[in-house]
Computed example of a mutant assay.
Amino acid sequence: MGDNAVSAPTAATLSGRESFAQRLLTGSVKKSYDPVVDMNWDAPLDPDKLFLPPELVSLYGTPLWEAMTPARRRELSREELANVLSVGIWFENLLNRLLLRELMAGDPTSRHAHYTLTEMGDECRHMMMFGKLIERIGTRPYWPNRFERWTISALQLFLRGSMMWVGALVGEEIFDALQRRTLDDPQLQPLVARAMRIHVTEEARHIGFARAALADRVPTMSKAELQYTRLCVAVAAPLFVYLMTNWHMYARAGIEKGRAARRLARANPHSRRALGLGAANLGAFLDTQGLMGPIGKRLWRRRGLL
């Protein structure tokens, strides 16, 4: 054997990071989905069922909600789902760009790199699934305004190292926790429930990957990186939550004063409680890693996330 030949590592010789990535790769082989073939896009929509469970609709429990007819509530749930899916598409687009950048400096033979590529493939299929679902439920996507587009594009400059994984967790865990509460809701459209189950199954691996990568990095952080990461943690989740309430979705649902409805939704204790439950596990994890500083706790509480 020549001097440059390198034998492939066995499972026993893989590092902890590589061993974990290998387990995720194995799990991906056993359970992954293709929305083109694993979703019945021709199935009829139920004319009486909602597109989000009522307690996850932003106006749930408000006087405006109580005054709505069942048909108007259904329409609002349809538009809110379209907005949530649109935010998901923006986020997964950004995440794939960040992951691709990481691969430029990584070892292309590593299990870590191979799982990164696998996750990117998952995210591409999720974006397709979300786009097809928006079309199938009979509405249109929501585009970020000019300021939001600038902010999303600028995030690529700031989400580096530890912050890339914080950003991944903010986008994945809050959405994932809310989805898990809807999977078996009898009021939910079956097609929507199926899409959420697929997303939850694959996102569980993505969340584990991001948590492990962040936990590995924390002990090596400099004091400056730690302070920077805490600052970014403080604003990341509130920004994500801000994007979840788009005034245009209220207007499309037939509510005349869309901006007033958005203000009502953001102050709605039911909506804040739902988001708080969605962010609970993420907040606890970031706190145990020492990444939730006093400013972060204050801002998260102000948005109802703690």
Score class of each variant (00 low, 15 high):
200 V>R: 13
146 R>T: 03
248 H>W: 05
23 R>L: 15
53 P>E: 01
140 R>C: 03
266 R>I: 13
177 A>V: 13
142 Y>R: 08
162 S>A: 12
81 L>F: 03
110 S>G: 03
286 L>C: 02
201 T>L: 11
38 D>R: 07
52 L>Y: 00
174 I>W: 02
72 R>W: 02
216 D>R: 13
148 E>I: 15
290 G>D: 13
191 L>A: 11
221 M>R: 07
284 A>K: 15
264 L>T: 10
148 E>P: 08
137 I>M: 13
269 P>T: 07
220 T>R: 12
203 E>H: 07
47 P>L: 13
119 E>K: 02
175 F>L: 06
176 D>Y: 02
180 R>H: 04
61 G>L: 11
142 Y>C: 11
87 V>K: 05
9 P>N: 09
161 G>L: 11
36 V>Y: 00
63 P>F: 12
72 R>I: 04
250 Y>V: 02
10 T>W: 15
113 A>S: 15
233 V>M: 01
81 L>N: 03
276 G>A: 14
40 N>G: 05
123 E>G: 03
140 R>H: 12
181 R>Q: 08
263 R>Y: 12
206 H>P: 00
289 Q>L: 14
260 A>K: 09
76 L>R: 05
199 H>N: 14
303 R>Y: 14
143 W>C: 10
128 M>Q: 10
296 G>L: 15
101 R>I: 07
15 S>C: 09
176 D>P: 02
301 R>W: 06
113 A>H: 03
80 E>V: 14
47 P>Q: 07
263 R>T: 12
221 M>D: 15
288 T>A: 13
298 R>W: 15
89 I>W: 07
203 E>Q: 14
238 P>T: 12
96 N>C: 13
208 G>D: 08
19 S>H: 13
157 L>R: 10
28 S>P: 09
293 G>R: 07
126 H>Y: 06
19 S>A: 15
103 L>S: 05
56 L>K: 08
267 A>T: 08
54 P>E: 07
236 A>F: 06
177 A>D: 10
93 N>V: 07
40 N>I: 08
236 A>P: 01
40 N>L: 09
184 D>K: 05
179 Q>M: 14
138 G>V: 09
287 D>V: 01
134 I>R: 13
306 L>D: 04
224 A>D: 12
44 P>H: 09
102 E>N: 11
288 T>K: 12
155 L>G: 01
171 G>V: 10
12 A>G: 08
111 R>G: 01
3 D>L: 10
139 T>C: 03
114 H>D: 11
256 E>W: 14
220 T>I: 14
225 E>N: 03
